[in-house]
Nucleic acid binder design. Structure first.
Lengths: 208, 208
DNA sequence: GTCTATAGGGAGATAGAC
DNA sequence: GTCTATCTCCCTATAGAC
């Protein structure tokens, strides 16, 4: 971990190891939220795994709400960055189908393994009090905008159906977290399945 | 409340009004779980809406776990009955595509309005402690078996992909609950969207 | 930055009267 | 069947010493 700027530099980028204390705590919180759900994780649980007592957490985060919101927002930031990076690696002439499959695979990869933040977000979003859910909506809408642009060419005949289509695709990708028992279905066959079915379903009006 | 058989007669069938006290309580619990989530609903909340004090609930249900499991199991029972009934109303010659669309619409209908039990099940399943989730799995597997049979003809080229396909379809249908803001997307356009995309995606190897 | 001690509240659940 | 009263536990969060 070399020279780091001072303004806005965070220790935990995608795939990097957390270096600041708040980032270590967030990593722990994200992993616990991902596996146990929101209500089942207490400040005490997080503190214990971080090797400290509960009140020490409040030096780093003013409340559990603040802590969970930091996890939630980063969860979307991370998957958005991953999807955008994957898209930018494509040649400019890439077809709609290729761009869609690339985005789907990047999203699935973030969800299943690459980011505890993203999986925590998807897993606990529905468990949060309404105020916290609303606080995460700006991030979510910014991410949905990417999919809106990706899917718009598949929806030219009925443009008003685009929001539903965006919700369907993201929802189907996210649903793999909840309905897939990792012990029974491996990730790669699932990714094949999901991308091929969704692509075929969505591409009917687009030339390959 | 008129004459009731003694063995196994329940007041709350699909679309019927609850007549027994336990069923009234379950109706209330299902609706609260559906809207507020699992941890956010206390025994006191349920008791209050039922017009009683907390301890009185324990006369009807020995614990919160028992109560929530009754809601969970009925949630699957109800949607399974609805889907099977819809399929049985079809002519025997109905195509795979028609049978699939019928099942999808019946599932979406149970989820969005017809049954607080089914929507509560889908909404809170991921919020339950692992033991309770496991307790609901037999019901869920029985329901998945219906979809396994429905989807098997779409999967003849790669039969080992069938479990993933079942998970994908059910997951995509269920995801409409979480990602769809009813204020922004109406149910019928969504149902159109979901059934058409999923059908096209799934039917590539089947003759219409 | 981390600690001990504790406040203050709400949860699930039980005892026992009526 | 429903009540009042209460137990016990665990949660978030604060006060203040070190």
């Amino acid at each position: 971990m070399g020279a780091m700027g001072k303004a806005g530099t965070r220790g935990a980028e995608v795939g990097a190891v957390a270096v600041t204390r708040p980032d270590q705590i967030l990593d722990i919180a994200a992993r616990q939220f991902r596996t146990k759900g929101y209500a089942a994780v207490s400040m005490r649980d997080i503190a214990t795994e971080a090797g400290m007592r509960t009140p020490s957490l409040y030096y780093h985060f003013p409340s559990k709400d603040d802590l969970v919101m930091a996890v939630m927002d980063r969860g979307i930031t991370v998957v958005r960055a991953a999807v955008m990076a994957a898209l930018e690696d494509l040649p400019a002439e890439a077809t709609v189908a290729v761009r869609l499959e690339t985005a789907m695979r990047a999203h699935l990869h973030a969800l299943h393994g690459a980011s505890d933040y993203t999986s925590a977000n998807v897993r606990i979003f529905g468990q949060l009090p309404e105020a916290l859910r609303r606080a995460n909506m700006p991030e979510r809408r910014a991410y949905q905008a990417i999919w809106s642009r990706l899917l718009a060419p598949t929806c030219t005949a009925l443009p008003e159906a685009l929001p539903a289509r965006v919700a369907l695709v993201i929802g189907a990708l996210n649903a793999t977290l909840e309905w897939v028992d990792p012990a029974r279905i491996a990730l790669e066959p699932l990714a094949e399945q999901v991308t091929s079915v969704l692509l075929r379903g969505v591409l009917s009006e687009v030339a390959a």
